[in-house]
Amino acid sequence: MNAFSYVTAQTAGSAVELVRERGRFLAGGMDLLGEIKDGLAEPAVLVNVKALPGTREIVVAKDKVVIGANVTLATLAEHAEAKKLLPALAQAADAVGSPQMRNVGTVGGNLAQHSRCWYYRQRDVRCVKKGGSRCFARGGENKYHSLFTKNMCLSPCVSNLAVALSALDAAVVVQRGAKTVTLAIAQLYERAWSEPKAHHSLAADELILRVEVPVAAGARSAYVRIAEKNEFDWALVSCVAAGRIEGGKLRGVRVALGSVAPIPWQVKEANAALEGREPTAENAAKAAERLLKDAEPREQIGYKIPIAQALVKRAVTALAG
């Protein structure tokens, strides 16, 4: 481990200033400390962002819920109003890791976490995500990898919150230099779609401050997943469906899949196929077909397709309540 300095930032502006010289933001540290110990990250400075004002609250407004980046996953999972207004998000938070991890891990950290690919995490493997020339998962042991990607790296986005927030059409407020910018979830991850080295779209000196989730009357959502183990395991595939039910029909519906692409996977045609329809298994199957149209069932990954189909069905039918 290299020697590093440690500084606590008092404002978002100073945090991004301080991190600029080979620094990393430190919130829960769940991912960062592992990367440092495994020799994957060698920051010169750790900028503690836990003291930033206003980042530890969940604020419920009339039309949205604002969740600070330093809110822990446990807090989110147990938040009474979040559970009521945004059940899929609370369920997604509750499904992360172990209770110890949820007590420490934060919303911002979960969204900005790095690849869990077992080649990327090997100290002595220099893969394309670390600037090497090849993806070892291609033609290798890739059962936990992506069905979709536009770049060489096969590692999927495994953030539970990303999938939920994608379906919930949330926005992320990010400190960029002296300003804040607001990104859609798709924008937060779009670089990872095309660039093998990217885990998300944020530059090293850009910091997630909060998440804004729109809430409409009658909104419903559901998070479903399957993992090899029942607890404390990564999802093989996860799915979130969100929308309203009006007169028995789905409105404003979005379905997102997790752990199948370097981004939360949404397909417009799939959402359109559900719009105005009943949340039935048959309609869900049609949406799943569109969601999975371009899936590449390579080597060990093909089994994720039937799982995704089943999860879409379960998530969409769960909206019927």
Partner: peptide, 20 residues
């Protein structure tokens, strides 16, 4: 007996995948 293998044994994994 992981899900990928159960699905493969049931013939539910699409062609092109070799599995584990």
């Amino acid at each position: 007996l992981t899900p990928d293998r159960v699905l493969a044994a049931l013939g539910k994994v699409p062609k092109g995948a070799t599995g584990t």
